[in-house]
Simulated assay, not measured.
Amino acid sequence: MRPKIAIGITTYVDISGREFGAAIYQAHEETSKRLTPNKIRIWSAKHDVGTAYDFGSLWLTVMPFEKREGKGPDKGKLIEKGEFHVGAEWSRTGSLAGRGRVDFRPEIDRSLCDTLSIEFNYDPKIDWSVLFERIVDVCKPAYGMLHLFTELELSRSEGKDRFERFDGPLVGEGSFTSWKTSEGHWRSPDKWQLAERRYYRFLPQLSWANYFGSEFDGEVDAMRRKTGAGGIQRNEDGRFLRITDAISDVIDRQEFFDTEREKLKSCFADGFFRW
């Protein structure tokens, strides 16, 4: 299996505007022109893209819907009416193949998050940190991750449950707030308890690069006190944490990477990592 890069973004910023789509395209282009998306799919419709404007124009598609009582020609009384906010799915074809998708919060609950998932074939010549940091600047996430997945990394998730798996872009509130009961059932905070939903307490595993927004404040502050701020870089909205200096360490210095990862994990509260 060819190693894969994964970037996952979970944000409460409304990133549905076309300017966000254009900025994500530009983040790819400024990192390397070999990364720029050239195809977009909106459900079954496929489009070629070649500029940030093209990409931004297809970033969000609004589709109206209505639900009625019956199924016949008349269909009966209107029960519900609204809009689907459909996010783009894109790809980059060629030797450095990649794909991504954006998912927007539903119209009926604007308190939920938007998510961004990106995967690429790994190339050591690309500075993946640049792409990650530029996307973080655009999205201001509650959590962002960048990791290099190898066969070994993927094998460690085999047989694990949904929120325990660490095998690709890690996104969505449930990844950070859901817990497993003693009976083996997954539970999540009450959807009406906004403060509880925004208190992030878990990760399945520590990625090579992590961005912790304010939702992780309690967990990261405790970790920071233990490490003396080593490895943590702060910006105005959150904190970056990298395990080593180079993402290639996941492959080229695997034992060293594993050791450094376990050292950092030991500084977080017991139970913060699902395994």
Results as ranks from 00 to 15, higher is better:
residue 1 M to Y: 05
residue 2 R to V: 11
residue 2 R to I: 12
residue 5 I to M: 11
residue 7 I to Q: 02
residue 8 G to V: 00
residue 17 G to I: 01
residue 18 R to L: 03
residue 21 G to N: 04
residue 23 A to N: 09
residue 25 Y to V: 03
residue 27 A to N: 04
residue 30 E to G: 08
residue 32 S to W: 05
residue 42 I to Q: 07
residue 42 I to W: 01
residue 43 W to H: 10
residue 43 W to Y: 12
residue 43 W to M: 15
residue 44 S to K: 14
residue 48 D to P: 01
residue 54 D to S: 06
residue 55 F to D: 01
residue 58 L to G: 00
residue 65 F to V: 11
residue 71 K to F: 14
residue 72 G to H: 08
residue 73 P to D: 14
residue 78 L to F: 07
residue 79 I to G: 05
residue 82 G to V: 11
residue 85 H to F: 15
residue 87 G to P: 00
residue 98 G to F: 00
residue 98 G to D: 05
residue 101 R to A: 13
residue 102 V to M: 02
residue 103 D to P: 00
residue 106 P to R: 12
residue 107 E to H: 10
residue 109 D to E: 13
residue 109 D to Y: 07
residue 109 D to F: 08
residue 112 L to G: 07
residue 118 I to E: 04
residue 120 F to G: 00
residue 123 D to F: 02
residue 124 P to Q: 07
residue 124 P to Y: 04
residue 134 R to F: 06
residue 138 V to Q: 05
residue 140 K to W: 04
residue 140 K to F: 08
residue 143 Y to M: 10
residue 146 L to C: 02
residue 147 H to S: 09
residue 147 H to K: 04
residue 150 T to Q: 06
residue 153 E to I: 07
residue 164 E to Q: 14
residue 165 R to M: 13
residue 166 F to C: 02
residue 171 V to S: 03
residue 172 G to Y: 00
residue 174 G to D: 12
residue 177 T to M: 06
residue 179 W to F: 07
residue 180 K to M: 10
residue 182 S to Y: 09
residue 183 E to F: 08
residue 191 K to R: 15
residue 192 W to M: 09
residue 197 R to K: 13
residue 205 Q to N: 12
residue 215 E to S: 12
residue 215 E to T: 13
residue 219 E to T: 11
residue 220 V to C: 04
residue 221 D to S: 11
residue 225 R to A: 11
residue 226 K to C: 08
residue 231 G to F: 09
residue 232 I to T: 09
residue 236 E to F: 08
residue 239 R to F: 11
residue 240 F to N: 02
residue 242 R to N: 11
residue 243 I to V: 15
residue 245 D to E: 15
residue 246 A to P: 00
residue 246 A to S: 13
residue 246 A to N: 14
residue 249 D to E: 10
residue 250 V to I: 12
residue 251 I to K: 04
residue 251 I to R: 03
residue 254 Q to M: 13
residue 255 E to Y: 09
residue 257 F to M: 06
residue 258 D to Y: 07
residue 260 E to M: 14
residue 266 S to E: 11
residue 268 F to G: 03
residue 268 F to M: 07
residue 275 W to R: 14
